[in-house]
């Protein structure tokens, strides 16, 4: 059975991608998935060699053919997104792609063409295959692309007979995060010990409850505020989330990033490296990751 571990945080910049890369180095045989399609960074550490590039077709956008438009104003009445100007030009940023104006234009003067919203890639890295993507600037449908990338990762894992997927998730709790966590085996929530870190982790934990995915909590930069670290761990324990360790604040994270490496390759013996190894061992022996196919919902966050 394929297990998928998704690394999330709620708040951005807590170290998701650096942690994911270190897990990849430790796991040896896993398939990597970058589900942060909006501002993907995992490739900067994994140096993937792209084997296949695919277009991602997202939603459609309406376009008024000036020659056929009689300026009756019906589309202006219909559009709930204020995407059509008084000169009958559609603003692509505001168009939701609902197609209501297209279907109901009395002159049939509005086109509705499918847009390419990005690309996705199948690649090889020094730690195994990787599926990643690039959503076009200012594009919608990030959730759809995340779902696609996760499906393709799963297919690849099956084809390679590999039983572990490591997914680097996006920040926040919105559409791309929802698409990243549904059906995952477990989440690793990387939290920093700050008021924002705690606040944002509580919201991502609520989301995990909503989707019935167990959460494992790891505090990064824990020594920046020990009281807050304890508060976060207290919250996690109260809500039935397993603690998988603490990682110290260490500039080695930045140094490794500059080298294009994971912390585990750059400085395996550093405090941060040893802490990451400990976190990885705890995750591997976690009941959430060893369910033998049995979904035990009593272990899910509450």
């Amino acid at each position: 059975m394929i297990r998928e571990l998704v690394i999330v945080s709620g708040k951005g910049g807590t170290g998701k991608t650096s942690v994911t890369a270190s897990f990849a180095a430790l796991a040896g045989n896993s398939v990597l998935c970058d589900a942060d399609v909006d501002a993907a960074d995992l490739h900067l550490l994994m140096a993937p060699v792209v084997k296949e590039t695919h277009a991602f077709m997202g939603g459609s956008i309406a376009f008024i053919r000036g020659d056929d438009c009689v300026e009756c104003g019906r589309c202006l009445e219909l559009c709930k997104f204020k995407a059509i100007s008084d000169e009958f030009v559609i603003d692509a940023f505001s168009c939701e792609g609902c197609g209501v104006c297209v279907d109901l234009c009395p002159e049939g003067a509005i086109d509705f063409t499918v847009q390419q919203c990005g690309e996705w890639y199948k690649s090889e890295t020094r730690f195994g295959p990787m599926v990643h993507a690039r959503l076009g600037i200012a594009e919608e449908n990030s959730g759809k692309l995340v779902s696609l990338v996760r499906q393709e990762t799963k297919k690849l894992a099956e084809a390679r007979d590999c039983d572990l997927i490591l997914t680097d998730g996006p920040p926040g709790i919105g559409c791309p995060v929802i698409a990243s966590i549904g059906g995952a085996t477990a989440l690793v929530i990387v939290v920093e010990p700050t008021v924002s870190g705690l606040h944002d982790m509580q919201r991502v934990a609520q989301l995990a409850v909503h989707f019935k995915v167990p959460g494992l909590v790891c505090v990064n930069k824990f020594d920046l505020n020990l009281d807050m670290t304890e508060k976060i761990e207290g919250f996690a324990t109260e809500h039935n989330m397993e603690l998988v360790g603490r990682i110290p604040f260490d500039p080695i994270f930045t140094e490794a990033m500059i080298q294009g490496k994971s912390v585990l390759e750059h400085a395996p013996e550093s405090d941060a490296g040893l802490a990451l190894l400990d976190v990885w061992r705890k995750i591997q022996s976690s009941p959430s990751m060893n369910t033998m196919g049995i979904k035990d919902f009593s272990a899910v966050i509450q």
Binding site: G12, D38, A39, F93, L135, A138, E139, S142, G174, P176
Partner: peptide, 14 residues
């Protein structure tokens, strides 16, 4: 604004 470059960011900057 939120992080990223997709629709929520555009909604916050536009």
């Amino acid at each position: 604004a939120p992080p990223g470059t997709s629709c929520p960011v555009i909604a916050a900057m536009k």
